[in-house]
Each structure stands twice: as structure tokens, then as C-alpha cells.
Amino acid sequence: MRKKRLLLTILSVFLIVAFFTGCACMQSKPTEKNFKAPVVTLDNMEVVHSFGYWYFSKKVKPTKGSPDNVGAPLDLAFTFNVENPNKFPVMLENLKFSVAFEDFDLNTVSTDAAQFIPPGKTNQVRVHAHFDVRQSLLSLLVTGGFKLKEKGTNAWAALEKWWTGIPKYEIPIHVKGGAAVFQAGGVVKVAQFNATFP
């Protein structure tokens, strides 16, 4: 009797596993041909933290801690909709993009936090991009000198404009060269995206 019960339990577990495996197998198999690249669109850009506009050189003695060249941070979060048009689930492996303030690329951010997107569904991905005045200043000074001069401005003026205007959503933020890597059944697809907000 006990043996029979045990046998029944094992059989039930086996049947449940077989049922779910069967369901999974009934979904269409991804191939290079039928795997459509999911569609990535920018849903929203949020100024998560803004601390105003300021910069201290290391010549300035701080109230506490050690002096350094430091500037105001700016934390932006980008929320993307990722729509899976396929009849099978796909895994988002990586998503990356550059962020530009006006004509100046200032950051390239990415996320490797993998997630599955069910067939025909849309997931959301939120990626933070951190900026600070010091780091953006160096980036502008080393690379953007000629371009700033052509525009009749300079690095400090540009930074002040961005750090005061972006928290008010007055300055368009560009998402450039976006690429999201998807995988399903060993097949890889890459989706491109670009956007401007607001």
C-alpha cells in the first residue's frame, strides 16, 4: 500500500513536469527567420535627483572631509518599453545607449540585468544615468572645445544651462545609438532605438 502511494506520488510529479514541458514545446521555436527584433521605445525620462548647479575646486576648504574638484550631481532615469512581437518568450540580455545634452554626448549607459519578456507582451526597463559637473566638464574640455567655440559658447556656460534647465524639463535630452541584445533559443537579435525627451 505504501509502495503504491509512493509510486502514485512519483507518477504525479512526472505528469506535472511532462505537462509543463509539453506546453513549452508547443510554443513555436525561435529561428533566425521567425525571430523578430523586439521594439524598444522611450516611455519616460525622469530627473530623479537634482542638486542645483555648483562647482568647488580643490582649493576651497570644505566644512568636513577633504577638498577636491567636485560639482553638482544630476541623476536621470530612463524608462523604456520593450515589446516582444514574437510567439515565444525572449530574454533581454543587455541594453545600452548614449545620452546627449544638445549636441554633446556626455554619457553611455547600459544594463546587464537580464529579464524574460513573454510572447506578445511589453515589459519595462529603467536605467539610471549619473552625471556630475566635474566629470562632464572634463569630457567637454577634452573633446568638445572646437564645437563649443563654433557655437559661440564655452564649457561653463553650457554646464550651467544644462544643470539649471534639465531639472525643469526645458532642455531636450537625446537617447542615441541605442542597442538592446535579445536572445531566444540560442538565436540573437539586436534592436536599435533613438529618442528625444521631452
Binding site: 553611455t108 549607459v109 566629470q135 572634463l138 569630457s139 574640455l141 577634452v142
Partner: peptide, 18 residues
């Protein structure tokens, strides 16, 4: 470095690594 003083060359290097 994709954001700092050497990001102009660092970004392309980072893409190449991946």
C-alpha cells in the same frame, strides 16, 4: 570611461570590449 575626461575614446573602446 564612458562619461569622463577620456570618454571620447573610451566609449568606442568599451563597445569594442563587449
Amino acid at each position: 570611461d564612458m562619461t569622463g575626461a577620456t570618454s571620447d575614446v573610451g566609449k568606442d573602446y568599451a563597445l569594442g570590449i563587449a
